[in-house]
């Protein structure tokens, strides 16, 4: 089974975020980056499917040069090779633009299955996988917890709201957007890190994939949200702050 995992590199969790001078995206100057967490779960699922059924896991990532580090980490965890769509202009593309590049890179690979995380921690649009499936003309499902390979295709466990789940069958090839937390993530072993150095990362440019499409949805301005609610913040050492809070809970909110 040949599996492509589409991953994204995003600013590390808890990074201090500030709008850039352009006002259209964040200032990335002093940030560190890591794999988008839901994508790490998609990669894990792909590696487990390969362990069960054999085949190949190919990592696909669009992003600037620095994304190579995240790709290398995915290879160290066990992916076989990678395709890096190298572009500095990712933030200026919309979901459709990014999905078009990814789909163009996927097509000649003829994979059986394409996995991705259900959303990115930066944009949070949660659409790339679904749009890619439409562009590739294959079925999809989202918020997937488990994947079972069957004779005629796959049977997946999809999460619904309020603690409900559902199984869905579909033929291959297909695109699945994976939910976080469905597997335990593995660490790269020393051997894996060593092996990753000799694994192939094929670099392609957007131009080689038919060019980047102009965005139909564009971010005009990004900013720190205005608070709609006035939060009373208590300062001082822990004991003082706690005492002030309890005073308010008891006599103002009257919930104690």
């Amino acid at each position: 089974m040949k599996i492509i995992v589409a991953i994204k590199q995003v600013p590390m969790r808890d990074s201090p975020l500030h709008p850039a001078a352009s006002g259209k995206w964040i200032d990335e100057a002093d940030l560190s980056f890591e794999i988008n967490e839901p994508d790490a779960y998609a990669l894990e699922e792909a590696l487990q499917l390969k362990e069960k059924h054999g085949g190949e896991v190919v990592v696909l990532c669009a992003g600037p040069e620095r994304a190579a580090q995240t790709i290398r980490e995915a290879l160290a965890k066990g992916a076989d090779r990678a395709i890096h769509i190298e572009t500095d202009a990712l933030a200026s593309l919309d979901t459709l633009g990014v999905a078009k590049l990814l789909a163009a890179a996927v097509t000649p690979e003829k994979p059986d299955l394409i996995l991705t995380g259900l959303q990115s921690d930066d944009l949070g649009a949660g659409q790339t996988g679904v749009v890619m499936a439409e562009l590739l003309g294959v079925p999809h499902s989202t918020i997937i917890m488990q994947v079972e390979v069957r004779d005629a295709g796959i049977r997946v466990k999809r999460e619904l709201e309020n603690g409900w789940f559902q199984h869905i069958e579909m033929p291959l090839p297909a695109v699945l957007a994976m939910q976080s937390g469905s597997n335990k993530l593995r660490y790269a072993t020393l051997m894996g890190i060593k092996k990753a150095k000799s694994k192939e990362i094929r670099r392609v440019t957007p131009a080689e994939l038919g060019g980047a499409a102009a965005a139909v949805a564009s971010v005009e301005k990004i900013y720190v949200p205005q608070k709609s609610k006035q939060t009373q913040i208590f300062e001082g050492d822990a004991k003082t702050a706690a005492a002030q809070l309890v005073e308010k809970l008891k006599f103002e909110a009257r919930v104690l």
Binding site: T95, L96, G126, A133, E134
Partner: peptide, 19 residues
């Protein structure tokens, strides 16, 4: 909606502005 609306928007060469 997250499961199908991006696909629907793509049919019209559009992007769903989500959430």
């Amino acid at each position: 909606v997250r499961d199908f609306a991006p696909k629907l928007a793509t049919r019209f060469s559009q992007v769903l502005v989500s959430d």
